[in-house]
């Protein structure tokens, strides 16, 4: 009996966890409402490390948005979504830049500005605090 209750609880928690938007430590990845691409975590990593420059449906070049170094959400996003430290990301982009492979995401903040850019550019992707999400953008779930 105990086992059955625990199984239900486990299933309930797992269901809640899986249905949550793509945030960890209150960070949510957002795209334009018209963006129909299936964006998973590994694709977000590829975007923010410069490995991928185009949307999967070839609808156009990805316009990635970062937040400023001073904003704590940036370190949260790097660690919880990308699995990297700020120093790792700085070194990685320095390699990309100086090898002529690509330029880092544009810096836009605060959250309201990120939402504004993402809501008006169908190729944009960014991240904001979970509490800042509204209908103007699509929060990614995975």
């Amino acid at each position: 009996m105990k086992h059955t209750t625990m199984n239900y609880l486990f299933a309930l928690f797992a269901g809640i966890a899986l249905s949550m938007p793509a945030w960890a430590a209150d960070v949510v990845v957002i795209v334009n409402n018209a963006n129909a691409n299936a964006v998973d975590k590994s694709f977000v990593v590829k975007i923010y490390t410069g490995e991928t420059k185009y949307w999967l449906d070839n609808s156009g070049p990805i316009f990635a948005i970062d937040q400023s170094e001073d904003n704590p959400i940036r370190a949260d996003f790097y660690s919880s979504v990308l699995g990297k430290t700020s120093a790792n990301m700085k070194a990685l982009w320095a390699q990309n830049i100086f090898a002529g492979k690509g330029l880092p995401p544009k810096v836009v903040d605060p959250d309201a500005e990120v939402k504004k850019v993402v809501s008006t550019n169908k190729n944009a992707i960014g991240y904001i605090k979970a509490s800042s999400v509204d209908d103007s953008v699509k929060a990614i779930k995975w």
Partner: peptide, 23 residues
């Protein structure tokens, strides 16, 4: 950027060789 996966370059370019050459 020719396609999503393919980039073309022309000019004086650092040679891609090993881990370090371009940097």
């Amino acid at each position: 950027q020719l396609t999503g996966n393919l980039t073309g370059r022309a000019g004086q370019i650092k040679m891609p060789l090993g881990l370090y050459n371009e940097i």
